[in-house]
């Protein structure tokens, strides 16, 4: 196989990025999805729309604003500098933050749909059995929403693996920090190293197909969650 150590480093980095992003998104996205599924607040529509924005925005828009916001003159950059963290573009942490925005809807929406599908009845029944709000969430809602959570994890992971435009704009192509597989494929193509580009690109193709096939086989959960 003509893959170099730089290619393997990119693969490893991509897997790390996708794992960390997915874990963080499950932690942050589940309460958000719960709120979106249950609330009657007027904020539901605008927040739901905000969550969905990355579905329609070009990654260049997200990348550009992240670069500006996280730069030394931007609000996020000012904050991270005052905390002694420096600025975030060109760092792995910066990529994680970019990926959180980029993959947010792919995690929140399936979970939200799953919560909404449960309806109020199981929760009301649990309440009559004296289950408190936390008890109802952890022992009724979460187990019932399991298929949605699985779909969310798979989609969040896969979508982060496929991230390109955002990374290209805030990454700076640094080995072991920001050079993920999609960027490495771009580098190979630009340098006319087509054999290596093929190996990585075909790997991505097979990987993505396998993921979607798994979702399809799990019944129609995945398809429903995406739509």
């Amino acid at each position: 196989m003509p893959l170099t150590s730089a290619d393997f480093a990119a693969i490893w980095l991509t897997l790390q990025l996708a794992s960390i992003t997915t874990a963080l998104l499950l932690l942050l996205g589940t309460p958000l999805a719960w709120w979106l599924a249950r609330t009657r607040s007027w904020l539901k529509a605008p927040i739901g729309a905000l969550v969905a924005l990355p579905l329609v925005l070009p990654p260049t828009v997200i990348g550009f604003y992240l670069l500006v916001a996280m730069g030394p003159q931007g609000p996020v950059g000012a904050l991270t500098q005052s905390l002694g963290l420096g600025t975030l573009p060109f760092t792995f942490t910066g990529l994680v933050i970019g990926s959180l925005f980029y993959s947010l809807p792919f995690v929140v929406q399936p979970i939200q749909n799953a919560f909404e599908a449960i309806g109020t009845r199981p929760l009301e029944v649990a309440a009559t059995l004296r289950a408190g709000p936390l008890d109802r969430f952890f022992h009724v809602a979460l187990p019932l929403a399991r298929p949605g959570l699985v779909t969310a994890s798979v989609l969040g992971f896969a979508h982060t693996i496929g991230e390109f435009g955002v990374v290209l704009m805030i990454g700076g192509n640094i080995p072991d920090q920001t050079r993920v597989v999609s960027v490495q494929i771009f580098n190979h193509v630009e340098a006319m190293e087509y054999a290596q580009a093929h190996w990585l690109a075909a790997g991505m193709l097979v990987f993505s197909f396998a993921i979607l096939l798994t979702l399809q086989r799990r019944g129609r959960v995945g398809a429903r969650a995406i739509s």
Partner: peptide
């Protein structure tokens, strides 16, 4: 652009 935006 990296330099102009101050990121580098």
């Amino acid at each position: 652009q990296f330099v102009a935006s101050g990121n580098a």
